[in-house]
Amino acid sequence: MAACGGGETADNALTNMGNVSESAPAATPAPIVTAEVTARGETDVVGTANADAADDPAIWRDPADPAKSLIVATDKKAGLYVYGLDGKTRSFIKTGRVNNVDLRADVAIGGTDGVLVVASDRSDEANARVALFRLDTATAKLTALGTVPSIEGEAYGMCLYRDAGALYAFMVTKEGGIGQVALDLTGAQPVGRLVRRLKVGSQAEGCVVDERTHRLYVAEEDVGLWRFDARPTGAAEAVSIAKVDKQRLFDDVEGLAIASDGSEGDGGYLVVSSQGDNAYALYRLADDAYVGRFRIAKGRFGSTEETDGIEVIVGDFGPAFPGGIMIAQDGENAPAAQNFKLVAWDDVLKALKLK
């Protein structure tokens, strides 16, 4: 299925197939090739065993020594882990049910710059909240700052957006609601103000913002990918990028990540977890065009299956990940509990002949 560029809204998501002549059978689509890569590392397992518990990762890149960068990841039954790039647990904070996580560096928190971590708090299934933390990069420990309300519904997806000095959290609920919350961290306690509501038609979770283009991407699990204007004054129209077609995307469509090329334009890729067939699809940010797909296959650290959350950061992360790193939740890590696999982004680009 060709990717849809623009104009189709969430309220008008059915494709008009037109009239098909009975004497002209549809052509057989060309098979979709799925490349393979192997992981170069993995994290320790989460503490909740025998359950779907690990979910979503975020990455803080150490600008002074990229090999000392940190991974923050959720055990959605219990709390947040901080790992080193060697995969070893550096700390854990018990938070209760937090589902997705994101972070931003150089954020003014109570008058002092630091690394802000946010997570979708599911403790009240009727009212989604944003949980906020400060990451001490020297000790690799998280300190809870508090929670702020967002919108009604069960908290699922979470992503941050920074624009013109303002910081926003997008909360995606299980029911498909999306709330844009302006965050104020100047005082002793964080404050959140709901500035906009968006919506897709059914269960959704994964979200990510490309701050260069002010585009918010949301994964509607059984339907496909949508793009919104992330600016609080932007149009609320949802533009369809791609649908679940059992070729490029399989339901459930889960985690999303931006693999920027480092430019100030729109270069790079949107990376999507195609959970239904244990694969990942790439779409070009410049025009939403499908580029290719790959799997994390069996190797020294095992394969990934049923991936929920993913993250990709392009850039130097030391000798093991010189061109960037991808973190993917592994939903089947038997006989151990679930964990996260670490992949060199260069390996993905080479497998898809993009480098």
Rank of each mutant, 00 (worst) to 15 (best):
Y290M: 06
R162T: 12
L167V: 14
A164L: 04
V98R: 09
A53W: 10
D102Y: 02
S202K: 13
V46A: 07
A164V: 02
L216C: 06
Y156P: 00
E175R: 08
G192V: 09
N339I: 01
F317M: 04
F92N: 07
L167Y: 04
L198Y: 14
A138Q: 15
L103P: 12
V209K: 10
A242T: 02
E264L: 08
S273Q: 13
D251I: 11
L194E: 08
K353D: 15
K88Y: 10
P57Y: 08
I327F: 00
A351M: 06
D347M: 03
S274I: 09
A236C: 05
G84A: 14
D330P: 12
K174Q: 11
Q329D: 02
D52R: 03
T43Y: 14
D261C: 03
E36S: 12
D106P: 00
D136K: 11
Y83S: 05
L80V: 08
T137I: 06
A336D: 09
T43I: 02
V46P: 06
G302F: 03
A204K: 07
P232M: 05
G79R: 10
V312W: 04
V172Q: 03
S303Y: 12
C207G: 06
V82N: 07
R293K: 15
V271K: 00
S274P: 03
M158H: 08
G324D: 01
G176Y: 04
E237Y: 09
V46D: 02
D229M: 09
L256Y: 06
V314P: 00
E205R: 08
T307Y: 11
P57G: 12
F250E: 02
D75E: 15
K141N: 14
V98K: 05
A138G: 15
P29S: 06
G41F: 01
G302C: 06
D65S: 14
G201H: 00
K353Q: 12
R212Q: 13
D113I: 04
F170I: 12
W345I: 01
A344E: 05
A235N: 15
R248G: 00
V101C: 05
T137P: 14
G165C: 06
T143H: 01
A219H: 09
Q338I: 12
A334F: 03
T307S: 15
V33P: 00
Y290A: 13
F294Y: 13
T112A: 15
